[in-house]
Design a protein around this nucleic acid. Structure first.
Lengths: 129, 129, 129, 129
DNA sequence: GTGGTCTAGACCACT
DNA sequence: GTGGTCTAGACCACC
């Protein structure tokens, strides 16, 4: 379970941690029940504050990706949908709108955007869906 | 040139202004050379701080969407690309990655995401490209 | 919008804040769109750390009770269900199980527990459901 | 006397042990005077730390469910109330309040909550009360 | 002024 | 050792 952050990036540190773990789980690079690095260990490795890691892990627990076992650590949870269809669409639309805005700002044609998205999605979905 | 903001939204106010003007320009609802509302007028209409509008206009000038004519106001600029291909792709990839992460988090299939994106892009591109 | 905490209680501070706001919203003591005290103001009033209040508000945003407007404050959101039926039941069962355990531990008869629960639920549901 | 723990659950391990023994006793699956597994044996069976089992047994002794006979083991005690009526109600109300909060958060109707509680209580009370 | 993020460090419960 | 909570204080973006 390798995690890397780029402190200079536009994304916040805890966001980068969340995303990477989500992708690792989605790509089956870690199995259900596997442990992820302890809060303190990861904080030490990334040279960030433990609270930052804890915040990232807390979000992953909230979204059902990880489970916490007090005193033992965090583990990859069995995948389950916890949000209603409407809520899931609402959240998806939020980020899609930012894509549309950015595409307009950069004068990309729709086809370019879609094609680029397809490329980036396929790149990390080796598991069966 | 009608602009509306929804204070309850997750997006920031100045971001909403920027996006709407970009969309209006992209959809050819305003022509090159047309004026946009003055900073003070729009601020009064939207009941927001003039600084907020000024910030939005400044970003649009920076990105080449508007031009300021000192003392006269802001006008829609002739479309020109100011970023290199590489920079444009880098910026597009940034938002696309956030889509991929959210799609994974919500367990959407790639096809659903792509289709939804197409819908939202077509909705606001009545002009020929 | 009055909030009070008892620092000596068994519940954590941020939990008490979350619960009281949830109840105020559920009991229609605050209307949709109303603002809640700012993070810093409430922290000062309760003599707790602003981070503690921020954590409470963050949970309420996650659960769709509040909405945050950057730079303006937190506001009561329109009520919407964001969790699936299964997830809602799962969460309800979690707390119900703790009741069952405690009732067993204290040798309460089922009827007593149920009656007591009914009392406490009715006490704070003045709104139509 | 079968005890099973689910490491993935939200509840702490020693809490699960305490609850299960309490339920077994309440449901008359073990009789007064019966022995429960030794600390070391149960720890080995569950693959947990003996301290964890010891802590669970200690709580059960404190609450009058078990009795320890030095050098012989732990045994089911004759049921006796150790808390005053007021204290019992106070403890019950604590957990009931958490139910009320969660029910509000999830927008459950009172009747649903009560019905669900009744179901879960009846499920494990085969003995006459 | 507001919220959002991050750091540093403390104390507690649990394994 | 682990996570959970809380404090104190910093810097930033936004209004």
């Amino acid at each position: 379970m390798q995690i890397q952050i780029s402190p200079g990036g536009s994304q916040t540190i805890y966001r980068q941690i969340v995303d990477q773990i989500r992708r690792a789980v989605a790509a089956d690079k870690v199995a259900i029940g596997d442990s992820v690095p302890s809060v303190r260990q990861l904080a030490k490795d990334l040279v960030v504050n433990p609270n930052t890691v804890a915040k990232a892990y807390a979000e992953l627990v909230r979204d059902g990706v990880l489970e916490s076992q007090l005193g033992r650590g965090y583990f990859v949870a069995r995948r389950k949908n916890i949000y209603t269809k409407a809520e899931r669409l609402r959240r998806l639309d939020d980020v899609l709108d930012s894509v549309v805005s950015e595409a307009l700002a950069l004068d990309f044609a729709s086809e370019e955007v879609v094609q680029r998205l397809v490329e980036r999605m396929e790149a990390l979905s080796p598991r069966e869906r």
